[in-house]
């Protein structure tokens, strides 16, 4: 890259590449200038950060706060469980429909359109729309994360189905097995491990997002978090953040084990 030795024959200067790097540098300076980012602002930020952290510590563990946080966290967990469960349930048919080796062209195209729409919008935006449609509360959050789940899982599940080894399926069909037996013996073993991996990953992702939908009224820990933030109760904010990080770290440790069970 930039550390070219002085032997032009061995490593000639790649001008287009060098030009791309210069262009990138110019862009960064231009963008920074338009965003009103100044050293002064950053320095002021640091002193602000010091006061912020001062107000965060020690984390607030007063009983009433703990109860509030527990309730919110449990609701976030429920949102994650339900949105993953129903989202996966809906993703299966959608994924099959989008797999180009199994479904007719028009169906695959339509399914891919649905998936693209599900994927394009950030869960928070989808939550806003669902809050308007079904009112404040956990349901809006669940529906929003179901949409996010469908966007991610059906796309990858369609790819898994497209990679199915048709020969293995044909061999089992040749034994006279019924449709369901072919599905159970020839198709499921091929997709199961990937599918469990996807589910675990998506639950993880839904858990992270379920802590956030509350900011726009979608239920879960996000609402108390946002309230505490607006009231400048930064010690409560820190407690909530620590709980979130702990929960997600815990699940990250569990998820590797779950995957291994279904190898």
């Amino acid at each position: 890259m930039t550390t070219r030795p002085a032997r032009p024959d061995a490593f000639p200067v790649d001008w287009p590449k060098r030009f791309a790097w210069i262009a990138l540098a110019v862009y960064v300076f231009y963008a920074l200038s338009t965003l009103d980012v100044s050293l002064d602002r950053i320095l002021r930020g640091f002193s602000q950060a010091a006061t912020l952290f001062g107000r965060m510590f020690p984390p607030n563990i007063a009983p009433d706060k703990v109860e509030l946080i527990t309730t919110g966290m449990l609701e976030s967990l429920q949102i994650a469980v339900l949105s993953t469960f129903f989202g996966i349930l809906l993703s299966l048919p959608l994924g099959f429909a989008a797999a180009r080796n199994l479904s007719p062209v028009w169906l695959a195209g339509a399914a891919r359109g649905v998936i693209a729409i599900c994927r394009s919008f950030h869960p928070v935006i989808v939550s806003i729309l669902f809050v308007k449609a079904v009112g404040f509360g956990a349901l809006a959050g669940i529906l929003a994360l179901i949409v996010a789940t469908m966007g991610f899982v059906s796309k990858l599940f369609a790819e898994v189905v497209e990679e199915l080894n048709a020969r293995q399926v044909e061999a089992v069909r040749a034994t006279g097995a019924s449709f369901f037996n072919v599905l159970i013996i020839a198709v499921m073993p091929q997709v199961m491990a990937r599918f469990v991996g996807l589910t675990v990953y998506q639950f993880d992702s839904n858990l992270r997002n379920s802590t956030m939908v509350g900011i726009v009224g979608g239920g879960g820990i996000g609402a108390p978090l946002f309230t505490a933030y607006q009231r400048f109760d930064f010690d409560v904010v820190l407690t909530i953040l620590l709980v979130i990080i702990a929960l997600i770290m815990m699940f990250e440790m569990v998820s590797a084990r779950i995957r291994r069970v279904f190898q």
């Binding site: 080894n165 020969r167 293995q168 044909e170 061999a171 089992v172 040749a174 034994t175 006279g176 013996i185 020839a186 073993p189 091929q190 199961m192 491990a193």
Partner: peptide
């Protein structure tokens, strides 16, 4: 009718 294949066609993960 039993069948034996060129690529064996076993279900690999079973």
């Amino acid at each position: 009718i039993g069948m034996v294949f060129q690529e064996y066609n076993l279900v690999e993960r079973l």
